[in-house]
Nucleic acid binder design. Structure first.
Length: 216
DNA sequence: AACCAGGAGAGAG
DNA sequence: CTCTCTCATGGT
C-alpha cells in the first residue's frame, strides 16, 4: 500500500530533487529553522545568513546570540533556534565535519544527533537523509496526516518510530534506493501543500482509496 | 482576525 | 509512553 502511494505520487508530480539547499550544512540549518515553521520564512532567514556569510559550522558559534537571533527572526522561535544552531554547529565541528560524520554507523550516529539539544527525531532524520545521504525515512506532520486520511493508520498521531518502521520495512522489501527515500518524503510534502491542506478528507484527492483503485 | 506552518524540550500523570 | 504547555513570526 505504501509503496503504491509512493509510485502514485511519483507519477503525478515527478521527481522533486530535494532538499532545497546548496550545501549539506545548509540542509542542517534549514532542518532546524523549519521546525513548526513555514518554509517561506525559512528561506528569508537562510538568505540573511548567506548575506552575512554565516552559513558554515565554523562561523555560527562565534556569532553573538543577538545577531544570530535577528537574522533568523522570520522563522519564529528565534531565541531557541539561535541556540539550537550553535549546538548543532559545535556538534559538527567536534566530530570533524559533516564529511567525517557521514562515515559513521547509522544507528550510532542517529543517537548522537538526538543528544544535541534542538535536534529531535524529524530534524535528525532530515539531516541523516538529505545532508548525510543515509537510507532513513523522515516522518512529519504531513506524513501522519496523509497516512491517516488514506486509512493506512488508525490515528493521526501515531508514534514517530512506529511510522518510520512501517515505511522503512516496506521500502526494504522493494529494495528502495537512497533516492526513493528522498523522493517519497519530498512528494508527500509537495502533495500535502497543494492538496491535503484544504481538503479535509482527501475526497477529491487522486490518492484517495477509491481514486487509486480506479486509476490503477 | 483567527489559524497554522516540513517540531522540540520540559514537566506531569 | 501519552498528553499538555511554551516558544513566535508571517501569510491567508
Amino acid at each position: 500500500m505504501i509503496w503504491k502511494v509512493y509510485q502514485k505520487l511519483l507519477s503525478i508530480y515527478g521527481k522533486q530533487n530535494w532538499w532545497p539547499a546548496e550545501t549539506p550544512f545548509e540542509v542542517c540549518v534549514g532542518a532546524i529553522l523549519t521546525q513548526n515553521t513555514n518554509w517561506q520564512n525559512v528561506e528569508k532567514a537562510i538568505e540573511n545568513l548567506k548575506k552575512h556569510n554565516l552559513l558554515s559550522p565554523e562561523k555560527i558559534p562565534p556569532t553573538p546570540l543577538p545577531t544570530l537571533q535577528s537574522l533568523i527572526k522570520p522563522t519564529g522561535f528565534y531565541k531557541q533556534k539561535a541556540k539550537y544552531l550553535k549546538n548543532l554547529s559545535l556538534f559538527i565541528i567536534e566530530n570533524g565535519g559533516l564529511e567525517n560524520l557521514q562515515k559513521e554507523n547509522l544507528q550510532a550516529l542517529r543517537k548522537k544527533l538526538l543528544k544535541v539539544k534542538g535536534v529531535g527525531r524529524e530534524t535528525a532524520d532530515s539531516i541523516l537523509l538529505y545532508a548525510l545521504n543515509k537510507k532513513i525515512f523522515v516522518i512529519d506532520a504531513y506524513t501522519k496526516r496523509l497516512f491517516y486520511r488514506l486509512g493506512i493508520t488508525k490515528k493521526e498521531n501515531e508514534p514517530y518510530e512506529s511510522l518510520r518502521t512501517l515505511v522503512e520495512t516496506e521500502f526494504k522489501r522493494h529494495n528502495a534506493s537512497l533516492e526513493d527515500y528522498k523522493e517519497f518524503h519530498a512528494l508527500i510534502v509537495r502533495h500535502c501543500k497543494e492538496v491535503c491542506r484544504k481538503i479535509p478528507i482527501c475526497q477529491n484527492c487522486e490518492l484517495s482509496i477509491s481514486c487509486m483503485l480506479k486509476l490503477n
